[in-house]
Simulated scan of single mutants.
Amino acid sequence: MKQEFNAAYWQQRYQNNQTGWDTQGITTPLKAYFDQLTNKELRILIPGCGNAYEAEYLFKNGFKNVFVADVAPSPLENFADRVQDFPKEQLLLQNFFDLQGPYDLIVEQTFFCAISPDLRASYARKCAELLAPGGRVVGLLFDTEFTHEGPPFGGSADEYRKYFEPYFKLIHFEKAYNSIAPRQGRELFINLKKK
C-alpha cells in the first residue's frame, strides 16, 4: 500500500522526533540570500515550513510579512513557542495546494523533496499561481538520488527544469557552493522569477 504523506503522517514524525531534515537553524545559502534583500515589505511564504528557522531569521531582521504554512500542527506550535511575537494569523495550518496569494517570494527549504514526486509539476504551477507578477521562488533542491524510500525524495536539475521552465525564468539554477556540510555537493540553489 502506498504511503500517504498527509497531515497525520507529518504530525506523527514530529511527535516521534523523526525529523532528520531539521538543521536546528537557518542554512547558509538562505541566510546569504536573505542578507542581501533590502525590501522589508515583501510578502514571503514558506510552505512546508517545519520548525521555520528561515521565518524566525527573517522576522527578527525586520521582515514582518512572513507567512509560514504546514499541514502538521506541531511545527507551527514549536515555532509559535519560540517566536512568541510572531503574528498568529501568519501561521497557516493548511495544505500548500489550498493556499491563496499573492506573495512576492516563496522560500523553498526541504518542502519540494517531502511531497510525492508525482506532485512536482503541480507544485511548480501552484508556486506561479501564488506569486505576484515578477515574484520569485528561492531556495534549495536536492540534486541527488537517495538509496532509501522517501521522503526525502531525490532528483536532478534536468528533471526539475521541466517543471519550472513553463512558468519561470531560471535566474539561478546551479549547485550551491555554500551548503551545510551534510548536504555539500548535493543541493541546487534556485532563484526563479515568475514569467
Results as ranks from 00 to 15, higher is better:
K2P: 14
E4K: 03
F5A: 09
Q12C: 10
N16H: 15
N16W: 13
N17A: 08
Q18D: 05
T19N: 15
Q24C: 04
I26G: 13
P29H: 01
F34T: 01
T38M: 09
L45V: 11
P47K: 08
G50T: 08
G50V: 09
N51H: 08
A52R: 09
E54V: 06
A55L: 14
Y57H: 10
L58M: 06
L58F: 03
F59N: 02
K60Y: 05
N61S: 14
N61R: 12
K64H: 13
V66M: 11
A69S: 13
D70M: 01
A72F: 04
A72H: 03
P75F: 00
P87I: 02
P87G: 09
L92G: 05
Q94W: 00
N95D: 11
D98L: 07
Q100D: 14
G101S: 13
L105Q: 05
V107T: 03
V107H: 01
E108Y: 01
C113V: 03
A114W: 07
A114I: 04
A114P: 00
I115G: 03
I115Q: 07
I115N: 04
L119D: 01
A124R: 10
A128T: 00
L130P: 09
P133N: 12
V137T: 10
G139A: 07
L141F: 10
F142N: 08
F142E: 04
T147M: 07
T147C: 05
E149T: 14
G150E: 15
P151Y: 12
F153D: 12
G154S: 07
G154T: 05
S156G: 15
E159N: 11
E159D: 08
Y160D: 14
P166I: 02
Y167E: 15
F173T: 03
K175G: 10
A176M: 05
Y177A: 13
N178C: 11
A181Y: 00
A181C: 03
R183Y: 00
Q184H: 05
Q184W: 02
R186T: 07
R186V: 01
E187W: 00
F189R: 13
L192T: 01
K193M: 12
K193L: 11
K193Y: 07
K194G: 00
